[in-house]
Amino acid sequence: MLKVTNLRKVYGSGDTATEAVADVSFEVDKGEFVCIVGPSGAGKTTLLKTMSGLMAPTSGEVEIAGQKVSGPPEQMALVFQDYSRSLYPWMKVGDNVAFPLRRKKISKSERKDIVEHAVESVGLASSIDKYPWQLSGGMQQRVAIARGLAYQPEVLLMDEPFASVDAQTRADLEDLVLNVRHEYGVTVLFVTHDIDESVYMGDRVVILSGRPSRVKEVLEVDLPRPRDQVETKELPEFAHLRAHVYRAIKGAQDPSEAVSTDAADEPRTQRAEPGAERVAG
């Protein structure tokens, strides 16, 4: 469904060039729920922006349903991390959800049904005529999810969607996404920096190294579905998997992180070598 091949993204050029994504390849099958987890500042958002066609990669390519991505593809929707800057404050909830459907060739009543259904499935039927800023943060992110669903994409990308809501809301939203994903039969690629979340949500977890990002490991998550906030997280397998991801990320962060964040050019090349070995081995 979604195929990322040797994706690389460098910002700027010459001396000031910074490499955000070094080399990332992975695949997502139809109907799968894949999480991308990596340390903060690992270039996850850059990765998502190139995958969604908002930004051209420096090299490598992204394919969706067999077609190369050169701009935002029709089969893809994206839920941004910052709902307060992604929802349009001058549109009511229903209008926000309906906005991407403007140019789809469907009748008015059909559009209305789609919008109502999407808003209903995120539990906001009674708020359809409110403005986003009249809602709590968690509810606003529900609106953004409803908008993504109403667009009826084959792939739903989510960029740390629950990073700015409180823990309880977060758990609710996690379960909401797992539910609507079944209802809509959508493939989900979910980016997060939260290790527990990645294991809890995903069928597979793609573990990224620190900046510039590479794929450190792809982990199968064999936990039974439906997942449950209490029961799933009680399982010894869950604890085992999250520990595994945790170690992988810690390992990814240690030497290479120190190299990539600061220091002038000379010591950088010297110190980069053991880090490079580590990644290769």
């Binding site: 969604s52 066609g53 908002l54 935002p72 941004f80 906005f99």
Partner: peptide, 19 residues
Amino acid sequence: TLVDTGRVYRIPASDRLRY
């Protein structure tokens, strides 16, 4: 982000400008 949202949902440039 507001503009990117419009682009992701393939809102044509004229509509992005207006809305």
